[in-house]
Simulated scan of single mutants.
Amino acid sequence: MKRPAKDVKIFSGSSNPELVHEVCRMLGVPLGVAKLSRFQSGETYVSIEESVRGADVYVFQSFSHPVNDHFVELLVMIDALKRSSAGMINVILPYYGYARQEKQDQPREPITAKLVADVLTTVGAERVITMDLHAPAIQGFFNIPVDHITALDLIADYLRTKDLSRAIIVSPDAGRAKTAERLATYLDLPVALMNKRRPKHNEAEITHVIGEVKDKVPIIIEDMIDTGGTLVKVIEGLVEHGARKEGILCATHAVFSHPAHERLNHPLIKEVVVTDTLPIQRLDALPKLKVLSVAPLFAEAIERIHTNRSISSLSLDTSRP
């Protein structure tokens, strides 16, 4: 990969430093030096320990647990960089938190995904790079450039290493239908759609299965896995309709809130495929887990943005070191 110019600076919040170190390694750019700490009261402190004057700065932060702490830390970092005369502040959000609160499902609810966009812009972010938003329309919440990249090619490349002769791509709800269709097209597979309703947060009830899943290996595609409850019900519903008892779950973001690990060890789930947009804890508790790295995608995105090239056709080149 072509190394960006010397005026590129990459900084990391505390949410996912392993991913950022790998991106820096691939680009041949040292990780920017910043001091991150908290006062006894819980307040966040950030100090940028090197000059960023006039530099193109890229700040990585995923909204992993604790979400609010990492969000505030990102805001403080952006403010510190702005006051240090950074030339351009690019915020890289591998996982955009609060994305599930992108509309009002009931009266008097907030649209918190828009609030996050407003705060990031107000504090000084000048570009956002993110991956597989829960709702692509969130891009429109920003009045600054948003580069929305996807891990779908990465997941498709991994699935191509398997026997897909009896596989079918399954969308767990209408919101994932377009993504499921794209993956099915990439892999030349049929597609099925589940219909579900949510009686409350983190709970779902499967009502219908649209498509022929009998004697098929279901490959379920989602943007994230939170508690895993919905996906377990999807698998169980598919098996009730004749699907094989060897489902494969694929998702970009491994949120894995309790009790996700226990649920994903369900005997009807053969494999869980995720990426490292979020740090993954307790790997030994889920032996069927396969983690794909998105570092090459973000490294390529940074290189293309810095050299003013399009990232709309961004794809994974597995020949990179």
Rank of each mutant, 00 (worst) to 15 (best):
D7N: 15
I10P: 00
F11T: 02
G13Y: 01
G13R: 01
S15R: 00
N16L: 09
N16E: 06
N16W: 01
H21Q: 13
H21S: 14
E22H: 09
E22I: 11
C24L: 08
M26G: 11
G28N: 13
L31D: 06
K35G: 11
L36T: 10
L36G: 07
L36H: 08
S37I: 06
S37Y: 05
F39C: 02
S41A: 14
E49S: 09
E49P: 02
V52Y: 00
D56S: 14
Y58V: 04
F60P: 00
F60I: 05
V67N: 05
V67A: 12
H70K: 06
L74E: 11
L75N: 03
D79N: 14
K82I: 09
K82C: 11
A86Y: 01
M88H: 11
I92V: 13
L93Q: 07
P94G: 11
R100M: 14
P107H: 11
I111G: 05
A113K: 00
A117C: 10
G124F: 00
A125F: 05
E126P: 00
I129T: 15
I129L: 15
I129M: 15
T130Q: 03
H134L: 06
Q139G: 09
Q139T: 12
I149M: 14
A151Q: 05
L154G: 04
I155D: 04
Y158R: 09
Y158D: 13
D163G: 04
L164S: 07
R166H: 13
P172D: 10
A174S: 08
G175R: 05
E181T: 09
L183G: 07
A184R: 00
Y186S: 09
V191R: 08
V191T: 11
A192G: 13
A192K: 01
L193E: 08
N195I: 13
R197A: 10
R198D: 08
P199V: 06
H201M: 08
I206C: 12
V209I: 15
V209R: 03
E212Q: 14
V217Q: 14
V217M: 15
P218L: 09
I219Y: 00
I225W: 00
I225L: 11
I225A: 11
D226R: 04
T227Y: 03
T227Q: 10
G228Q: 01
G229A: 14
G229T: 07
L238K: 00
A243D: 10
K245A: 14
E246K: 04
T252G: 03
V255T: 12
V255Y: 02
A260N: 04
R263P: 03
K270C: 15
K270I: 15
D276N: 12
P279V: 09
P279Q: 12
I280P: 00
I280M: 13
R282C: 13
L283D: 06
D284A: 11
V291S: 08
L292K: 00
L292F: 02
V294E: 04
A299Y: 01
E300Q: 13
I302P: 01
I302Y: 01
R304G: 08
I305Q: 10
H306N: 09
L316C: 07
S319W: 11
R320F: 15
